[in-house]
Amino acid sequence: MPVLDVKDLKKEFIAPDGERHLVIDVPSFVVDPTAHVALQGSSGSGKTTFLNLLAGILLPDRGVITVAGECLTSLGESGRDRVRARHIGYVFQTFNLLQGYTALENVMLGMMFGRGADTAFARALLERVGLGARMNYRPRQLSVGQQQRVAVARALANRPKLVLADEPTGNLDQHHAGEALTLMREVCRENDAALLLVSHDRDILAQFEDVRQLAAINRALSSVATLGVRP
């Protein structure tokens, strides 16, 4: 059974002029357990919207999304929150670390809404991403690369079955981006998590065996590109 199964997914947004625009129209999309899939899409192609739909942050207008056997689209908001907390890890392009919290607390918070705080595992994750000596540093006290590693550790804190990564290396230079991606893939592999990464960076995409074009799976892409708004 796939860890992610999308069927007939549609999402519209209302533009400032009041017109409805179809931004996501994905007839079918599947990610197998422990698979590492890269999704290539240019800026403004609806990548973030697609990932937010998969994470249950946004609700589609139509279609079915099943994550780890749970049908997200038939659940209420708190049900989607629960599925997200238990089965999905999310690495944002801007990392979205909580500034007032230490690296360890950021990872711990990732656990507290899901399976529960496991300090030993949180420490182990931070050790694994090379931040054993900086667990009590706040994000501002860490370099961009280190912040990215905290975000990876946090995404894996609840031992998710699916990790979504939205341009996770977008803020890193080429050298650090390569290192970060390798680390992310290794950690996902060690934790038996599938990885779905979206990016427009060819160097990043080149490291994946399974690269899919967003334009190929999203039939609404041409209208989104002309919309000029980021949902």
């Binding site: 942050i57 908001e77 997200r84 999310y90 670390l97 909580l98 007032g100 809404f113 899901g114 946090r154």
Partner: peptide
């Protein structure tokens, strides 16, 4: 933004 991140981590609205 902090609330949005917490929600993205799985925190309920009620939380």
């Amino acid at each position: 933004r902090e609330f949005a991140i917490l929600r993205a981590l799985g925190a309920r609205r009620g939380t």
